[in-house]
Design a protein around this nucleic acid. Sequence first.
DNA 1: TATCCTTACGGAATTCGTAAGCATG
DNA 2: CATGCTTACGAATTCCGTAAGGATA
Lengths: 318, 318
Amino acid sequence: MNFQQLRSVREAVRQGFNLTVVAEVLHTSQPGVSRQIRELEDELGIQLFERAGKRLTGLTPPGITVLPIIERLLQEAENLRRAGQDFASQGRGTLTIAATHSQARYALPLAVRDFSLAHPQVALHLHQGTPQQIAEMLLAGEADIGVATEALAEYPGLVALPCYQWTHSVIVPPGHPLAQDAQRGAPLTLARLAQFPIITYEGGYTGRSHIDAAFARQGLALNLVLSAMDADVIKTYVELGMGVGIIAAIAYDEQRDTTLAAIDARHLFASNMTRLAVRRGSFLRGYVYEFIRSFASPLTREVVNRAMSEEAGTGFDI
Amino acid sequence: MNFQQLRSVREAVRQGFNLTVVAEVLHTSQPGVSRQIRELEDELGIQLFERAGKRLTGLTPPGITVLPIIERLLQEAENLRRAGQDFASQGRGTLTIAATHSQARYALPLAVRDFSLAHPQVALHLHQGTPQQIAEMLLAGEADIGVATEALAEYPGLVALPCYQWTHSVIVPPGHPLAQDAQRGAPLTLARLAQFPIITYEGGYTGRSHIDAAFARQGLALNLVLSAMDADVIKTYVELGMGVGIIAAIAYDEQRDTTLAAIDARHLFASNMTRLAVRRGSFLRGYVYEFIRSFASPLTREVVNRAMSEEAGTGFDI
DNA sequence: TATCCTTACGGAATTCGTAAGCATG
DNA sequence: CATGCTTACGAATTCCGTAAGGATA
């Protein structure tokens, strides 16, 4: 039994049982892969793959049982290598953060700047994507840390840690009827909001689910004129007068956004929990803990380790 | 990175950093072991072992961090092999049970007989030892299942499952004053018991702790004339009139033990919980689950799996 | 001085890629 | 007939054990 055999099996499953592709991915020859798999099957005494003639078509029941063990083995091997690097490279290394636009733009900058000052030797990579893409990157080991408000807590392969809570704000051009309401001290209601065309986040992004839920609960129709993946785009169209924006409160900056007025809307929509996730079972290099800590100070090394060793919870957004 | 390197490191720690011994244990040459370790250190880029001159003296901090990862890797490799055997050998195989004398003699026989009838292809091994030895055997992978009343729940590396509760009985020769008390209907008390020389289990065995605790709680001195590791020995000396025996109630059989009288003592001593333990993270072959089930029917495969995936509890005897 | 680890070296075994063969959609 | 897996074979590499060397308790 050796690691190359295990890699071949794992990759064969990932690549849809096409050994030619596996060989390319593993930078080796196709007969080599074929042999690795056969040798492992022989040593274990079981067929791992269903075969239609010569082609592999899927996993056998033993293969299904054994695959998780193989994946754990390979992950631990990866952990070993990382642990080595962590000690050997005295701070040098790479930190890959996968985040949604909102997080990358409004929540992460301070922590990222501080980290990069404290660890000039660490190359930072900031990837953007949907919450689902972020989760996939973490699971594939392509990112060390994921940050998003949605979805992360629903993957059992990930450990999602609550970072901070935030609420929505409504943004309008100055002089907009809603701005006048606010100046008169009239509290904003969903019914009033429903009278205007709305611009907000794409479905599945940045607390959009809570917006839909609030309108649905009161039986109101959301007159959505435009949806976008980030607050900057939303702001632009609100400035153009296309409608009323609903964005994360943290995305509005009074100093900078002088062409817009913000109205607090925390009483209208359920609050959101932004979570930071890592892959369950990963070895985290020392500076990864430090980044997490500087992003969300309650998340000490101990807290993170405890969460990682706990059983996968039910995990849904608050 | 390969498994032989990992085995060498693990064994070096286990054998007290003596590579000559490691080589013997691994059936290879000493320079081979030396090289395996050096190569792994080179590949990981860190020293795993402290060296005084040429001799290894202990683990470095990186070594301490990395050792648990190595142990997990090797255990998963073992799991993989076992899973293979489980499918390949269609029922054939080996089941090693480590138990205390009491369990082997009084609790296990029925389950063992049933199992051996149901699985004639499985070679059964019944090892006897102290609870500590049983735990060590499980941790070392030398036994599949451990059964004991003491200690097992205190090892975080083990998963201990409660099987059944039992209490103590007092045994005396017929005609003994205590037997006469019982015939008159006078309930047995600790104070009365303290008037006689006592024969019971060795410290650390079969509920002995609860016996000591009961006497201590009432400020009574236990007049221990003899202690033994198993009920059969105790019975023998009670028959000889050397003293009053305190044994597990299950160890007295009215049919067989005609030369002795038993007096229920469940009201005097805290009841005991016999536990079955397996190593945390082990792959259990199908028939292992079946044996567990037949020994303690509430312990279904699902119950066992759930317990194994739970976090290590505080774990002390009830 | 006995124990224990490292280095050096040569033979053996393993490993791997290329080329050819064969089955299947 | 193109795709995809297996078999065959030879070269290169790796692996491992023996023998010798050196440091330490």
